[in-house]
């Protein structure tokens, strides 16, 4: 059975750590980092990358459009 795997790339320096992507992710992939970026924001990152399906929900609701989404069938 074909399975879909996804991944996101967050532009860390542009992320404002609002957390909207965290709640938008249906598979709980994303968390806010304990570290901060150059602006002092706890940026988003893939905490559970293997659960990502590349649905792009996070990217769609990201107000600053700092998330790129990749998807592949495996």
């Amino acid at each position: 059975m074909a399975k879909v795997r996804g991944a996101i790339v967050v532009d860390i320096e542009k992320c404002k750590g609002c957390g909207v992507c965290v709640t938008a992710c249906p598979t709980n992939v994303i968390q806010l980092a304990k570290q901060v970026n150059g602006k002092g924001y706890n940026y988003a990152y893939m905490e559970n990358p293997e659960a990502c399906t590349g649905c792009a929900n996070c990217a769609l609701v990201c107000p600053d459009t700092v998330i790129e989404v990749y998807r592949v069938k495996v």
């Binding site: 399975k3 795997r5 996804g6 991944a7 790339v9 893939m46 990358p49 293997e50 590349g54 792009a56 990217a59 769609l60 998330i67 790129e68 989404v69 990749y70 998807r71 592949v72 495996v74």
Partner: peptide
């Protein structure tokens, strides 16, 4: 799944 993140993040797989 047995695929590494770096193999997913490729230009041809960009969806958004």
């Amino acid at each position: 799944a047995d695929i590494e993140i770096k193999d997913i993040i490729k230009k041809e797989n960009l969806v958004y």
